[in-house]
Nucleic acid binder design. Sequence first.
RNA 1: UGGGGUGUAGUCCAAUGGUAGGACAUGCGGCUCUGGACCGUAGAAUCGGGGUUCGAAUCCCUGCACCCCAGCCA
Length: 569
Amino acid sequence: MAESNDTPSLDFIREIVARDQASGKHGGRVATRFPPEPNGYLHIGHAKAICLNFAIAAENEGGTCNLRFDDTNPAKEEVEYVDSIQEDVRWLGFDWEDRLYFASDYFERLYEFAEELTRKGHAYVCSLSAEETREYRGTLTEPGRNSPYRDRSVEENLDLFRRMRAGEFEDGAHVLRAKIDMASPNVTMRDPTIYRIRKATHHRTGDAWCIYPMYDFTHSLSDSIEGITQSLCTLEFEARRPLYNWVLEHLDVPSHPQQIEFARLNLSYTVLSKRKLLTLVNEGRVSGWDDPRMPTLSGMRRRGLTPEAIRTFCDRIGVAKRDSVVSVAQLEHAVREDLNLRSPRVMGVLNPLKVVIENYPEDQVEWLDAVNNPEDESAGTRKVPFSRELYIEQEDFREDPPKKFFRLTVGREVRLRYAYLVTCTSVIKDDQGNVIEIRCSYDPETKGGTAPDGRKVKSTMHWVSASHAVDAEIRLYDRLFNRENPNQVDVEGHDFHDNLNPDSLEILTGCKLEPSLAESRPGQRVQFERRGYFCEDIKDSKAGSLVFNRTVPLRDTWARIEKAGKQHG
RNA sequence: UGGGGUGUAGUCCAAUGGUAGGACAUGCGGCUCUGGACCGUAGAAUCGGGGUUCGAAUCCCUGCACCCCAGCCA
């Protein structure tokens, strides 16, 4: 897959893989996996893990990457999520071929492993309540105490465990625990629970089971069963690596993968936690998991980001072990870079201001040539209609132009893109003094946009012929949170909700688009010249009532100048 | 005060004892029928203190800061 020429050096994980390949540690194989829990939608943080795992497999001869659902908690998992996850991974551009796995497919084998562990005296059934278990576990600084059930005989453990499986006990009555060390300074090694009773219907196995294996037990064995060579996960699992290895060392397993941890992605001005994203969805702060403001892959897809841009972004941010927060500007850059090369240009006026070209014949219409993509000659040209009444952008006219404002003002000549040089002659205002229409004259000698006498204008503006315009709704998105780190709060009792940006969505109606957009279809990406990249909404847009989402605005030098001017007086 | 990790420009990532480099962001300039794109250019960093070495971001000692772990979640 996408090799990064930007970073010729290997990240620490690829270095390990290369070393293992050189030493033949895993018999020359490279097998990775992406192991999501189907309890939420995938987000950009998952994209980092997906790109990493699939890319490492692809970079190595014969390498494979599995998609495995870690579905061991029926209470939180749903088929809606397993479907969306597959759709998102595919959309991102990766193919797990026939290697779609579910931890739940291993339940029988996992159960047998658990019996094996019990038979070997490495696991026991503990009948402490959850609260008692916590008390016995000790604290970070004090060792735990052995459970009074720790020394049950193998026979009793086996009998109890089988009866747990048979459904003889209620939730919480017993658990199966690994017998390790209650005094370990690493609390995860203090006889961790590996099976619990949960009389719940599982989205795949239904009611076949009432006991479910815990993460550490399931994950290590699933990796082993699948012959994974490097098991990549995020930093918070680092302290569990001894347990991962312990499980594999105490059982007769097919292989012993190496767990390697890397830093999860954090992105500025958003949250990447399924739990937090779920609350935004459930509380109606956003329209759903695929709200274009969400950092989910489905949200980004709907907003118009491309999988290529996301992959490029993931390549560029690299992989390391230190906690970091990547600037969202980095993502936006990758998106603009990709969209710049591929998006057809089109003219659309977001906030229309009526213009009448007074010396242009009443009923005349000229169809002018417009370039579809200056970055791609093969994209060709199209015709746009020009007529006496037009719309331009409100912000492109100023009655009292500030310094460095090059656009239209009374008495100034500018170019209407692909059309003519026009000069503003007067303005019409309403009772409140707002400019509601401007009057211009055009120079018929400048058709196409160039003056025969060679005179220059400082500005070129986009426009749309009023009588030909197609109406549309345009949704402008801004950052979801107004703090770089939404989890940072100054006020006692506040949380990330209090950092939500109330202006993250602005809906514009009555926008005027050039008539070629009537042919647009949901999902179509375009650049509205001088405004940004937009994507026709895949849910709400219909022929006749178009809806476009702004993916990302164009870099706006003027906005920057103006802002700087205001700051410095 | 237990254990495990991590400290390099504003941000992300390199440099594996030998000129601290790239990308994003920012400033300036050029070009332009998008104030876009593109081109050029500038400023900007090794957590602190010791030590080893001809030479330290890298090795050693010490201190500091930050992150993770006490679910019958993953």
